[in-house]
Design a protein around this nucleic acid. Sequence first.
DNA 1: AAAACAGGCAACCGCTGGCCC
DNA 2: TGGGCCAGCGGTTGCCTGTTT
Length: 287
Amino acid sequence: MDNSMKKKSFKESEDTELRRGPWTLEEDTLLTNYILHNGEGRWNLVAKCAGLKRTGKSCRLRWLNYLKPDIRRGNLTPQEQLLILELHSKWGNRWSKIAQYLPGRTDNEIKNYWRTRVQKQARQLNIESNSDKFFDAVRSFWVPRLIEKMEQNSSSTTNYCCPQNINTNNNDSLLPPSQSHDSKSIQTYTDFSGQNICLSNIDGSTSSSTFMSDLTTVPHFMDHNNFTDGSLCFHEGYDQELGGYIPGMEDDYMGNQECHVADGYSVYEDVTQDPMWNMDDIWQFRD
DNA sequence: AAAACAGGCAACCGCTGGCCC
DNA sequence: TGGGCCAGCGGTTGCCTGTTT
């Protein structure tokens, strides 16, 4: 047997040692228990010490995309969808970067959303999903439709427009939510026009926010003419590169379990079931 | 009822950049 | 300075499930 054969057989035996494919409940438990007791650390070490026959890479992926306690599951909310559209228009396929602004959502999930939903819509329109034409179509039809859904949701549930917890430490105002720290928990009610942000403190008192005094920080998909009544509650967050503040961040899931229930159903359940496009409306965008 | 098809998503692959020796 | 190791990222694949025929 020559060296290459030896190498091959060694590699083969190594490969058969390593498990691949779907994770079992037992593996999940091993990994979760290990990380909860010892922290993440080096993934190759984690895999070894946890007694898993998986690569460190595989363990990392499983933990980050599925097992991590703060992972959110279920359909993306209209706010999250808006945010993805906006951030993608700015950064392109920088999924991990986009994911930083959607707490609890993974880059993988956002990537899958983009590929399966957004690109599908673009295909139906026969438009490149990253073209100006597509952005125009999104701005003109998709965004208003999402807004409409949000309106419906906010009127059909008292939970939707409830106060949310956000971080208001000024020192952190340029950090993505996940990087913020030492947060003071306050509650916000947001005028959808972006002009009259009302911060409601825990004790019920209110104070004005200066965060959105600059309307250029509002996603450019959003046509403010659509939001003249100021009745919508839009969630806010901080954005490092967009210049400060963007809606849709710091969603209400932390303090508002009803909106994102663990059984996979939520008040937004129907949102993604609806066709985003009215084909009559968007005929003009077709090539 | 069953086969074919399509969509959604978990997981893998390959590349890149950072760190350490 | 260069090589090895590792984590992270984006692209891709393949399986599972629901829907259609």
